[in-house]
Amino acid sequence: MSQPADRPIIAEFVDVHRHYVMGKNVVKALNGVSMQVKKGDYLAIMGRSGSGKSTMLNILGALDRPTTGEYRVGGRDVSGLDDNALSDVRGREIGFIFQSFNLIPQLTVLENLEVPLFYQGRVGKESRAKAEYLAERVGLGKRLEHRPLELSGGQQQRVAIARALMNDPLFLLADEATGNLDSNTEQEILNLFDDLRPDGVTIVVVTHNPKVAERADHTLWLKDGQVEKLVDNRLAGTAHGGHP
């Protein structure tokens, strides 16, 4: 462990269930998941399709609410919040990175970067300065006035990462962030994640790609809506569980 053990918990699942009603059947996508993400963590969530990965991502991203159980962000239970308040949680506490970059095509890079702050009413000179700083930080250089489609996939994902950092989120939430990239670019993006960590950035990646997962400190394995195991990837090549 490189970081002190008393790092604050910034995201926490407490016995989270998420059930979907499909006709007469109840699908238990998550069935009692508890876990913690501490500041500075780099956590990968893995599992086969149907394991509850996507559901977990949605709840982590405050896009969905647990059926029962608690989801705490920064110590506050957000599982009972209404749509408005959840939007605020997404806008202030979470930095999304998507598989297909999800930049808004008609906006320039700068405008894309400013979107999260726009909804906080914080667009202005400072947001521009911050966008310039972050563009530099993620290795975009001076391409602020370009349109997304004028950039390569890797550059687009860098824009998305910068955008996710604009609101100083508690953690980055990446959904198959390298799924649309070739393996070289994938390595670049994963290296960028590593680069960001000294800044105190917390990263949660949801993936089915072991190569991506093994770059994280820990891997949380899901199976049938439950935590199968938590693996510390830093203990060379072994797969024994246990909390860090």
């Binding site: 408005n84 939007s87 605020d88 999800n102 808004i104 979107v115 999260p116």
Partner: peptide
């Protein structure tokens, strides 16, 4: 969807 994920309210 993107805008909602980035904090846009209804």
């Amino acid at each position: 969807g993107i805008r909602r994920a980035l904090g846009a309210k209804k």
